[in-house]
Structures are given as C-alpha cells and as structure tokens.
C-alpha cells in the first residue's frame, strides 16, 4: 500500500467536512443534521471512488501531524505576508508619482509535486508585488512591480522567502 493509496480515505474525510460546512445552518434540528450527515457520507464516498485517480501523483498525501503543523505555520506566515503586500500596494497606488519599476523575472524552485507548486504560485501571487505567470521545467516566471534584483537566485530569495521551506515541510 503506497502512500498515495493511503491518502484516499482522507480525501473522503475532507469532502465530508466541506459538505457539513455547506449544510450547517443556524437552528438546524438534530434529526435533519443526522440525515444530512448520512447523505454526506454517501456522497463523499461516491465522489472519492469516482475521482481518486485524478488526485494521484499530485503530492497530496495523508495528514501526518508534522505536515499539518507545517501547513498551519505556512497559513499564518501567508496571512501576515498578504497584509504586508496590501499595505505596500496601497502605498504604491496612493502615492502621486506611482513609484513602480515592473518586469518579469525568472525564479527557480526545487519543489516537485504539482500541488506544492500550486500552493507556492498562489502564495506568490497574493504577496508583495508579485504575480506568477507561468511555470516551466526550470522554474517560475514572475511579474514583479518593483524589480529589486534580476538575478535568479537572489530574486528567488526575496520572493519565495519562507514559503518554499515551509511547503517543503508540508509536501515531503
């Protein structure tokens, strides 16, 4: 039983939790909640059986506590960076002379799994002045509002920051 196969039950659990979040409403009675729970279990298992093969090879694997801890750390770092990004963007937008120096730089990444790359790309897009445009074999192409460094390594250190280390903890 490979680690990919082990991830299948967790997919059903995540789907069930999302379903319960959808059907919950204030003042729901116990009886109808139990009915919704049964329907949720059936739907989650059915969807898992039908679609689990599309999740293989993406790097989505089981919830080891260490991964969950890394993911929570990643989430809070991400929220903080996002607030900083927005204050920075507010400063740029509101200053009269528009202090921008845009360009597209290339950044290498050592992450391999598609899911890890997706999270890194999303995090980059939502944080200071950077927007992921495309991935290829060597790395990511990133549009940057204030280009501080054109070199691949140093730009990568500024842009990716702590995200890549945390994501490596989540997906390794």
């Amino acid at each position: 039983m490979s680690s990919e196969t082990k991830s299948i039950p967790y997919l059903a659990v995540v789907l069930l939790l999302i379903w319960l979040g959808f059907v919950y409403q204030p003042g729901i009675s116990m009886q109808s909640f139990i009915q919704e729970l049964f329907v949720g279990i059936i739907v989650a298992v059915a969807v898992t059986i039908l679609t689990h093969r599309h999740f293989e090879g993406l790097g989505v694997a089981y919830f080891h506590p260490r991964r969950v801890a890394y993911f929570i750390a990643f989430f809070f770092v991400f929220l903080w960076e996002m607030v900083k990004a927005n204050l920075n963007m507010a400063r740029i937008v509101l200053s009269p002379e528009l202090p921008i120096k845009p360009g597209i730089v290339k950044v290498s990444t050592s992450l391999k799994q598609p899911a890890a790359k997706l999270f890194l790309g999303n995090a980059i897009t939502l944080t200071p002045g950077t927007l992921t445009i495309d991935y290829d074999d060597g790395g990511a192409y990133i549009h940057w509002v204030e280009v501080k460094d054109e070199d691949m390594g140093r730009a990568g250190e500024i842009i990716k920051g702590r995200f890549e280390r945390l994501l490596r903890g989540v997906f390794s």
């Binding site: 120096k101 845009p102 360009g103 597209i104 730089v105 290339k106 997706l118 790309g121 999303n122 897009t125 939502l126 927007l131 992921t132 445009i133 495309d134 192409y141 549009h143 280009v147 054109e150």
Partner: peptide
C-alpha cells in the same frame, strides 16, 4: 482568485499584450 489571475496573465501574454514600455526586464520573452 490567484489561479484565475495567473491563467489570465499567461493567456494575455500569449495573446500578445505588451508590457509597459518602462519595464526593466522580461525573462519570459
């Protein structure tokens, strides 16, 4: 939201929309 933005940015670049003329570097080109 970031997935949509990335997809739209790449599609626009491939559809031929230019960067601002004062841009300093374009590795994608």
């Amino acid at each position: 939201a970031p997935v949509g933005a990335s997809a739209l940015a790449r599609a626009s670049y491939n559809a031929g929309i230019k960067l601002w003329e004062k841009s300093v570097v374009d590795k994608y080109k």
